[in-house]
Every structure is written in C-alpha cells, then in structure tokens.
Design a protein around this nucleic acid. Structure first.
Lengths: 212, 212
DNA sequence: CTGGAAATTGAGGATGACCTCAACTTAGCA
DNA sequence: TGCTAAGTTGAGGTCATCCTCAATTTCCAG
C-alpha cells in the first residue's frame, strides 16, 4: 500500500535517509535538520513532508544498526570462554558507539526510545542477561555485578568517547581496561550502593533527559 | 583602585554573583544569562555591565570552589594509608561535582579555562601527582596508572552524575567502586593503549569542546 | 541641595533553530 | 499530449538566546 508512492518521492526519501545517517553520525542526534535537508539536496519543506518529526528519522535509521548489536551478542555467546565473551560484548558495544556519534547519543541519554527501538533494546538486555549470568557462573565476573550496571557503564564510556574523539580517540580502550579489571571476580570489594532497579532503568528510557 | 565603585554597583555585583552561583549550580554552565539577571533582580543590561562575558562569571565564581579541592588534597595526603588517601581524593572530587552541576561541567568538558582557573587546575594536578606516586609506591595502586588517567575518569563520572541525578543519585558511588577495584595493583591486566600525554591533556583544556 | 559622573534599564537587532503552508512544479496515467 | 494529484519549495512566523546602546535614574562629593 505504500507502493503508490511516486518515484521522485521515493528517491528523495532515500537521499534524506542517507543524509540523516551521515549528519547524525557526525554531529549527534541534535544536529540541525536544515543541515540534513541541505546535504540531501532537498528543501526543508520536503524533509518535513517525509519525516514530520525528528524521531521519525531515528525510527527509520536505528533498527538496522541495532541489528549489529544482536550479531555482536551472538558472537559473544558463542565464545567458549564466558568471561572473554562478556568482555568482547562490552568492548564491541563501546566500539560501535565510538564510530557513530548518533548511536553514542542513543546509548548516552535517557534515550528517546520508540516502538521498534524499544524492542531492540529489550532484546539487548535479554542477551546481556545471559552473558552476565554465564560469566558469573564461570566465576570470573564478580558476583555483585548486575545487568543494570551496564547502563552507567555506557553513560561513562559515551562521555569519554565524545570528549576524546579529537585529541585521543583510543583512550576509551584504556579506561575500559581499568573498568573490566574491576569487574573480575578477584578484584571485588564490597560496593556501597545497590544496583539500579528495573524500574529505575525504565525511568531513564522514557523520561526525556536534559541535554548537556 | 576598584575602591572607587559606587555602593549600589557593588551590591548589584554581589547579587549577580549569588544568582549566578545558584543558577549555574542547578542548570550548568550553559544556563541562560537572562535567568541569572532575573534571579538577581537586575536587568540584563546591568548583568552585561558587570560581566561582559560569561567567562567572567566563571572566573569570579570558581576559584573559591577550587579551594575546596586543595583542602581535599591536603586531607588525602595526610592519610597515613596511601591507597585510602588516593581513593578518598577521587571520591571527594566526584562527590563535589555531584552536588554542583556547574563544577560538573567544568570537570566534564574540554574545560573553558582561564587565568586563575588554569592555575588552580595546575595545583590540582600537582597534588594528584603526589597522591598517585605515593599510592603506587605503596604497591596498592597499579603501576600503569598515570595521573592523566584521571581526566577520562572525571569525564566518565560526570556523565553518570548528570544522567542519574533524578532517578538514582547515588549510582555513581557504585560505579566508582568498580573502577577503584580496577585500579588496585592486584587487579591489573595489561592495557591496550598508553595514557594521555601531557600535550593531549593540555589540548582538552583550551580547545572548546562541542556541547552534548 | 544640586550637578554631573556612574549605573541601570529594557526595547530591540542578530542569530540559529524549529516548523508551516500557499504557491509552484512534475511524474505518470489516460 | 495533456491534466491532475502528488510532491516540492522556501519565505516567513515562532521561539529562545545572545548582546548593545540611547535614554533614564541614582548616587554622592562639593
């Protein structure tokens, strides 16, 4: 039923999507839409015709990228070494956002989740649960680590990536090294505060967060 | 020579300073100046008369706060246990920015450093050098930790503080627990990337950083 | 008390982003 | 080849912030 679209309109839609992917990838999710229109070689009016709200771009762009997360999780779960699998997943997740400012924003904020994105996120958490469980059972991941601890971890890494992009784009690997060393069972010392609850995590996902 | 200022002008200046401290503390360094003027009960023109540039507020406000850092460092250096001193310093530093959105911004960004602030920062690094040195010599802090690693650490914590302020204002303590566990000598595994150099760190301090 | 220097005021110009819509252009069917 | 619905256009309204400056008010020294 969307087949009845005119050819030029379809072309413009694609150009907009390409431009949006590029612009959001470079400048983040708050990039001006006029820049997207400009880069697509299309007027701002046409942009709003195809994507009435900024969120519509996100819904069109990110599901495909989030598929990469699923693949990452599968590879990680296939690793015979549970700790290596866990570590590889975390590192892979951070590496993905290091190369994509838009994805970085998605992970960094109390994210602007919609429909399909929400599901992808749910799947991500499910995968993560299994990875964490497996790594804990193997005795290599500290027992008091919880899946929800991944959220602050992503916040942290996202900021490091943003700040260091220009002057030292690899530092995040070093910092992640420190953190992972702190997550090994042998390193564990008692923690002063309980992990975020499911409800708290959910709170970050719909509540709009203040910019920085 | 600034003695020749009129009494009302001095009063207004103080009101502006108080208002600015409050507003920047709540909303961060990008808070609208009109809000500062409004809260000071003064017109926007007067604000610009006293503080022609936003930076002038920072220069007037932050040196006093940075004195707290010096005190913190002294306490930490006085601790007979070098590791405890180091850990207390880090925790104190993070705690300070947890209570002050403005200070958080100062630490989080490729900061907007000026004159006096720059010096305070230098002092901070000098203190930190000694704390790190001492903790390493005691064999409790991992040998490959460098003073400049503190910069990404502050970036990381600042983001966690910002994101969690509303829904779980204590999570940062938990995450810092993980990180500190990773900094203990016993936890160390080889790192994939060298620390930031002095020059790189300096690069963050003048280069204006993009907002978030 | 008073004159003039010092300070204050706030309307308004500049900027950059958002979004709309009436007028125009064009694809594609008959 | 028209003709029309689908699509495009971009000037311009809205909004939030920045910053300026001519007119006005206030302080205080003489």
């Amino acid at each position: 039923m969307p087949k009845t679209r005119r050819a030029d309109a379809a072309r413009n839609r694609d150009k907009l999507l390409d431009a949006a992917a590029a612009v959001f990838g470079e400048r983040g999710l708050d990039a001006p839409l006029e820049e997207v229109a400009r880069r697509a070689g299309v007027s701002i009016g046409t942009l709003y015709n195809h994507f009435p709200a900024r969120q519509d771009f996100f819904d069109a762009i990110f599901p495909a990228r989030l598929a990469a997360l699923d693949r990452l999780a599968e590879t990680a779960l296939a690793d015979p070494d549970p700790w290596a699998g866990f570590a590889a997943y975390v590192e892979g997740l951070v590496a993905l956002q290091a190369g994509d400012r838009g994805l970085n924003d998605v992970l960094a904020r109390g994210f602007p989740l919609a429909s399909e994105l929400g599901e992808a996120c749910h799947r991500g958490f499910a995968h993560l649960d299994r990875l964490v469980e497996r790594a804990k059972e193997s005795g290599r991941l500290r027992g008091d680590f919880e899946t929800s601890d991944m959220v602050p971890l992503m916040w942290a890494m996202s900021q490091i990536i943003r700040e260091s992009k220009d002057a030292g784009p690899e530092v995040w690997r070093r910092f992640l090294g420190f953190v992972l060393d702190g997550l090994r069972a042998g390193a564990a010392h008692p923690l002063p505060v309980p992990a975020l609850s499911r409800e708290q995590v959910a709170g970050f996902m719909d509540g709009t967060s203040p910019g920085a």
